[in-house]
Simulated scan of single mutants.
Amino acid sequence: MIAVITDHGSDDLFMGVLKGNFSYLLPKEEIIEVTRPISFGDSYVASCIAERLACHLPKSTIFMIVVDGQNESARRPVGLRTKDDRIFIGFDNGTFTLPIERFGLKQIREIDVPEVKFSLSFTRSVLDILIPVAVDLSKGRNFESIGSIYMTFYDLKHKRAGIVDGKIKGEVAFINERGDISTNIPFDYLEKMGLSQEDKLKINGKLSSISLDRRAGRKNELIVCEGLGGYVEITSRYSRAGEILNLPSRSEIVLEV
Rank of each mutant, 00 (worst) to 15 (best):
D7I: 02
F14P: 06
N21C: 04
S23A: 15
S23D: 14
Y24G: 04
Y24W: 01
L26H: 01
L26V: 03
L26E: 12
P27Q: 12
P27G: 10
K28P: 13
I31Q: 12
E33A: 14
P37M: 07
S39N: 13
F40W: 01
D42Y: 00
S43D: 09
V45K: 01
L53R: 00
A54Q: 01
H56W: 00
P58R: 00
K59Q: 03
S60K: 04
S60R: 00
T61V: 05
T61G: 06
I65C: 09
V66Y: 02
D68P: 02
D68I: 06
Q70E: 14
N71C: 13
S73D: 06
A74I: 01
R75C: 10
G79R: 06
G79M: 14
L80R: 03
T82W: 12
K83C: 11
F88N: 05
I89A: 06
F91L: 12
F91A: 14
N93Q: 02
N93G: 07
N93T: 06
T95L: 03
F103V: 09
L105D: 10
K106I: 00
Q107E: 15
Q107P: 06
Q107N: 14
E110C: 09
D112W: 05
P114L: 12
E115I: 03
V116A: 15
S119V: 04
S119T: 05
S121Y: 08
F122T: 01
R124D: 14
S125M: 08
L127C: 04
I131G: 01
V133T: 08
A134C: 09
V135D: 10
D136W: 00
L137A: 12
L137Y: 15
S138A: 03
S138C: 01
I146W: 11
G147Q: 13
G147L: 06
G147A: 07
Y154G: 14
R160V: 02
R160D: 02
A161M: 03
G162W: 00
G162E: 10
K167C: 00
K169H: 08
G170D: 08
E171V: 07
A173T: 02
I175E: 11
I181M: 13
I185A: 05
F187S: 11
D188V: 09
D188F: 08
L190Q: 00
E191M: 03
K192G: 10
G194Q: 10
L195V: 05
S196W: 10
L201N: 11
L201R: 09
K202Y: 11
I203T: 13
S209Y: 07
I210L: 12
I210C: 06
R214D: 10
R214Y: 13
A216E: 15
G217N: 01
R218I: 08
K219Q: 14
L222Q: 07
L222K: 06
I223G: 05
L228T: 08
L228D: 14
L228E: 15
G230Q: 14
Y231A: 06
E233Y: 01
S236F: 02
R237A: 13
S239N: 09
R240A: 14
R240W: 02
G242H: 10
G242K: 11
E243H: 03
R250I: 00
S251M: 06
E252I: 13
L255V: 02
